[in-house]
Design a binder for these strands. Structure first.
Length: 745
DNA sequence: AAATCCGGTATTTTT
DNA sequence: TACCGGATTT
């Protein structure tokens, strides 16, 4: 078989163009289900086999590790090799970690750095705030963390922030600076650092830059609409002056702007690379006609698009169905009943069905319903395995074994399991460390030698310090499981660290530890470098929950988690105004459009059937609220719905037919805040027990003092107010929980 | 040091 | 309501 036949057969003209174009930068705008993955993998294979480019010169970047693994497998299959270590397919973060590891000296960082995940980072932020003497009443750690991450994505150093954010009520620049200091002291990098450091290195060091530009002559970035400013900068730096860059993206599937992704990277790509060639992939191979029509009719309302029209040669398929429950419990039951019927009567495999929701909170009722009808299901995403306390403990022990001077790890586990080191002893250690500018481990060693620890802490500390020294010696040569075994034995973690082993919690903790051992074994089977450092890096960069395999289950997940997947039969639940679209997006048109894209992503996952679900009243924050159908439902082209669905989802359908504009106007008023405050109805007044609170009212809070109501709103039953306190702090409350006292003016 | 209470909060989340 | 984290009690 010829190469052409192998790589280009069964591709349409656009796809062929995207695979074979080369010589100038290439922008592929790929609609949902347009065979994007196929194009990318074939392009890599083509560059290598067809154009004759050495495989090690091609760098492909994906959004997740899972996507990278899959792409790697497919490319290997096309190339006809079991696996090629020279294949550079990975995420931005892994690639940067690799680059920095190799160039640590030039980048001015420790060659063995720890990578902090989100939770480690939060702990570091809390510490930084303490060090800076900023109370968490001035700013929430999460808020500061977000600021720092956004600053790094935008490639701003603390010094850059000094001026730009000088007027903020929260001293962000100062906190950022303290945070950076802390990380440096602990030889740690956070996720954003990996990108930012690599950018700075390549930007500031010509020799290194040229070396990497030569190394990767051909760049390929998938999910380009989800890249942030720093990542794009990295692409530009690696591309150099004679770029062979290919980016693939879909502006209609940009759903991560809230964490820094900039669609403008995609929309403005041809301004950065003026001679870039654009290929649009608009033929959809995934969905039946009705699904595609439904999705298209909704997304057409967005303004921020390159614009494309997906089409398909597939049959129309079934019209879009609907399920409307009296309340959320009934909604879940209806879904479960329908699933039971599909599985039992229609012979549909559970694995071909997925249920999507806007937020995890909606999963619980659904689970109850599915259990009641004995539908096998699994939740994709959710709380991550490596976030579990006991797992984090073990990771910190390992980190300490690798780098005893890492204070963040030391603090976490110095008293785990409890060995008498309370707040007092820890305080002594930390202040000694700060005073003599040494690590906590070193400070504790000195204090122990001086006999500073009393009572239970004395023996406890001595044992602990000796153990850390022993693990550290081991970590240099021993494998991960050997070190872990020593840790578990020395600390008696499994007997003393998990609490009551007979309790439900203790049970699950022990199970988690077993699973962690399993993960270690898995790692050692795959990698040829079994040392602790490599293991920890892999963990930080690829925190995928150990795969549950392809069990025969219905998949439940948030829409965000569903991106990139496809199922024969898709249910979307919780389609109520305020839930999906989420009410927090109403004030910002840009955010609201992202919400619509999210809905678009949900719809375009379906291959064959789509069922949209809602409830007439829903428990939220503990109380039942009457709901209004999601605005997105009324945006659907009504011709794709079953008659029943039309009646059920759009109670105002008659009016709509008579006077579409009248309906729009009504929608405008009811959900109008999406289009700006002016048209929004006045927020309902709180009707709490002690009289309503209005803007301008003076109130007293038990702990926060006195202030003025500056905003009021929320739904009946859970009215909210925003209060500006006299000391400058602003805080939002749910009125009935807050215990605010109204004061006479 | 563990058990309990209380207040505050309430999207989406990969790397 | 339900969860978490911090404070307070035992």
């Amino acid at each position: 078989m010829s190469l052409e036949a192998l790589l280009l057969d069964k591709l349409n003209d656009r796809q062929r163009e995207a695979v074979t174009h080369h010589g100038t930068p290439l922008l592929i705008v790929a609609g949902a289900g347009s065979g994007k993955t196929r194009v990318i993998t074939h392009r890599i294979a083509w560059l290598h086999l067809g154009v004759g480019i050495p495989i090690r010169q091609i760098l492909a970047v994906t959004f997740t590790n899972k996507a990278a693994r899959e792409m790697r497998e497919r490319v290997c299959a096309l190339l006809g090799v079991p696996d090629d270590p020279a294949l550079a397919i990975s995420t931005f973060h892994s690639r940067c970690a690799m680059l920095l590891r190799r160039e640590a000296e030039a980048a001015g960082i420790s060659p063995s750095f720890a990578i902090l995940d989100e939770r480690d980072q939060k702990a570091a932020v809390v510490r930084a705030m303490e060090n800076a003497g900023v109370s968490d009443r001035t700013a929430k750690p999460a808020q500061v963390q977000h600021f720092i991450n956004m600053a790094k994505m935008r490639m701003l150093t603390p010094t850059d922030c000094d001026e730009e954010f000088a007027d903020e009520r929260v001293p962000y620049a100062l906190l950022y600076r303290h945070y950076e200091e802390l990380l440096e002291k602990n030889a740690s990098l956070d996720f954003e650092d990996l990108i930012f450091r690599a950018v700075r290195l390549l930007r500031d060091n010509g020799e290194v830059r040229e070396r990497w530009q030569r190394r990767f002559r051909h760049l390929l970035v998938d999910e380009f609409q989800d890249t942030n400013a720093g990542q794009f900068e990295l692409v530009k730096l690696l591309a150099g002056d004679d770029p062979d860059v290919c980016v693939v993206g879909d502006e209609d599937q940009s759903i991560y702007s809230w964490r820094g992704a900039e669609v403008t990277n995609l929309l403005g790509f041809r301004e950065t690379f003026p001679n870039a060639h654009l290929v649009r992939l608009e033929q959809n191979y995934r969905s039946v006609g009705n699904v595609l029509k439904a999705a298209g009719s909704v997304i057409a309302r967005n303004t921020m698009r390159i614009g494309k029209e997906l089409w398909t040669e597939q049959p129309e398929g079934d019209p879009i169905g609907a399920l409307v429950g009296f309340d959320d419990t009934e909604e879940a039951n209806l879904v479960a009943m329908r699933l039971a019927a599909m599985i039992a009567s229609d012979g549909i495999a559970p694995a071909d069905i997925a249920v999507f929701y806007r937020s995890h909170a909606l999963a619980r009722v659904l689970e109850d319903g599915l259990r009641k009808y004995r539908i096998p299901y699994r939740i994709v995403g959710g709380t991550r395995f490596y976030d579990r306390a006991e797992i984090k403990d073990l990771i910190c022990f390992l980190r300490l074994a690798l780098m005893p001077d890492n204070d963040l790890a030391f603090e976490r586990v110095v008293n785990v399991p409890t060995r008498g080191v309370g707040p007092k002893a820890l305080g002594d250690i930390l202040s000694r460390g700060a005073g003599e500018r040494i690590s906590a481990f070193e400070a504790a060693t000195r204090l122990a030698a001086e006999g500073a620890f009393k009572g239970k802490a004395r023996q406890g500390m001595e044992d602990f310090l000796a153990a850390v020294r022993r693990w550290h010696a081991m970590a240099a040569h021993a494998t991960v499981h050997e070190v872990l075994k020593a840790i578990l034995e020395d600390t008696r973690y499994e007997t003393e660290g998990v609490g009551d082993a007979k309790s439900l919690d203790g049970q699950s903790r022990l199970e988690n530890i077993e699973e962690f051992k399993q993960a270690v074994a898995e790692f050692e089977k795959l990698e040829d470098d079994n040392r602790v450092g490599t293991f920890l890096e892999t963990l930080a960069l690829d925190a995928q929950r150990p795969d549950e395999g392809d069990r025969q289950t219905v998949s439940l997940m948030t829409v965000h988690n569903a991106k990139g997947l496809e199922f024969d039969h898709v249910f979307v639940v919780g389609l109520d105004q305020g839930v999906f679209p989420n009410s927090r997006t109403f004030d910002e048109p840009a955010q609201f459009e992202e919400e619509r894209r999210l809905f678009y992503v949900a719809l375009t996952r379906a291959r064959r059937t789509l069922t949209l679900c809602r409830a007439m009243r829903r428990r939220r924050e503990g109380f039942y609220d009457a709901t209004v159908p999601s605005q997105f439902l009324s945006e659907l082209d009504a011709s794709v719905l079953t008659a029943e669905a039309r009646r059920a989802l759009c109670p105002d359908d008659k009016r709509r037919e008579r006077d579409p504009r009248g309906f729009e106007r009504q929608g405008f008023r009811a959900f109008g805040s999406a289009y700006g405050r002016a048209s929004a109805p006045p927020p309902s007044r709180p009707t709490g027990g002690r009289g309503a609170l209005n803007v301008g009212d003076r109130v007293r809070h038990r702990t926060l003092g006195e202030g003025v109501v500056v905003e009021s709103g929320g739904r009946p039953g859970s009215e909210r107010v925003r209060v500006a306190f006299d000391d400058g702090i602003e805080q939002e409350f749910v009125v009935k929980f807050a215990g605010l006292t109204k004061m006479e003016k």
